[in-house]
Design a protein around this nucleic acid. Structure first.
Lengths: 220, 220
DNA sequence: AAATAAAGTTAGACTAACCTAACTTTATTA
DNA sequence: TAATAAAGTTAGGTTAGTCTAACTTTATTT
């Protein structure tokens, strides 16, 4: 049985290496930054995780998860996202509050609890941020890949997920009445700064490039 | 913020000192036995807890919780019993399975979570074993105090709580179709071994003295 | 390609939470 | 009440997980 700390290292490694931004490997430093620890600390832990065959790397080389390591990390992610869903949908937390609590709940060790929670939530495919919830076998529902910023002029789309889950962004979305499933039409693209004018419901709003790069949408 | 371990010491102390069996103080050894640790280990921790003013004792003397220490322990108990209720009533765990998982869940730090869970469960007064759930202010609903063994001949009563929460006893109760709220009538008391013959629903069963001392009931 | 910067590793130290072994104090009992 | 047993404490050791400071290796840049 892994400690919470070990699980967090594997989760961080999954995040860093399964990053859709391309890179499939992570270094000691990346991990240290992501976990808020010192490289020396991470180095120590990596030795132990390598010993236990959860990660694989050569000295001074890049780190990757082994099959077992990845399975564990995916399972922790599954629990995290199920709990986030529970907190939002059942206990009516707002979506900017759930992450911190789910960070704790994801480490509860009880397969029965996880599966019953999944059943109670009616086997959801996506969490409140639109992130896919891994199934018990480790498979993931497809993830939306289209950025709002890449939607063509006059096209309509539906918000599928948020790329940025920081409370400040989520609260801003709330304020704009934008959530998962919200329909958006691109009315104008300002070439000067790549900002966009959008139709949301009956209103129109202007959003920055950064904003448009933080929302994932489904076509039409 | 206390560690899980520290919370467990306070909880154990609450259990040992708030024991309705009379004694209001506990010793290093009692704690060690209850927690499955060595007296030396407990001694170390007690020094820290005293330092932090959660417990009070003099060298070689008995240990008791301070006001703050008791408040924390009661709050952990509140969370434990709310989670047990959630697991049984919402996720359909059986009452012999909930304890182990609740031992983990009770340490989740989020007041909002606790209060929302309470609300979702409709502010229950008792957990699945009939134990009172402390309110946010620390007050407890009244606890049943009458043992089945002390019920007079030909009297009826209602099961209010179990004194023994071991899976083996709980499963036996299940087998006998006895749960919280079950109505029981005392048909006969065998003076030889203090066993009792009971009416439960339409059937009659014979139970041992040990059994009759493990069930708490409400009058009539 | 040599100099410099960045990334990674090692050594030594600290705290929390556990242990064993030896010792001291308090309680029990012959 | 003196001997013995039980309870409690101290000293010193272990592991997990963190740190700083110094060092080595790899990557970058001129």
């Amino acid at each position: 049985m892994l400690s919470n700390t070990e699980e967090n290292y594997l989760k961080a490694l999954l995040y860093l290496t399964a990053d859709e931004t391309g890179k499939k490997e992570a270094g000691t430093n990346d991990l240290a930054v992501h976990l808020g620890l010192k490289p020396a600390t991470v180095n120590d832990m990596l030795k132990r995780l390598k010993e236990k065959a959860y990660v694989s790397y050569k000295k001074y080389g890049k780190i990757s998860l082994t099959r077992t390591g990845r399975e564990i990390a995916v399972f922790v992610m599954r629990k995290h996202r199920l709990w986030e869903t529970f907190l939002c949908e059942v206990l009516e937390f707002s979506w900017d509050e759930v992450h911190e609590v789910a960070e704790q709940l994801e480490h509860i060790q009880s397969d029965k609890l996880t599966e019953r929670l999944d059943r109670f939530l009616n086997y959801p495919d996506y969490d409140p941020h639109g992130d896919p919830i891994p199934k018990p076998n480790g498979r993931m529902p497809p993830r939306a890949t289209t950025l709002l910023s890449s939607v063509a002029l006059y096209q309509s789309c539906t918000v599928a997920a948020v790329k940025d889950t920081s409370p400040v962004f989520l609260q801003y979305l709330e304020q704009l009445s934008i959530g998962i499933g919200t329909k958006i039409k691109v009315l104008e693209k300002i070439s000067f700064d790549s900002s966009m004018i959008l139709q949301v419901g009956k209103g129109r709003i202007t959003v920055s490039e950064k904003f448009a790069n933080s929302l994932l949408v489904d076509g039409q």
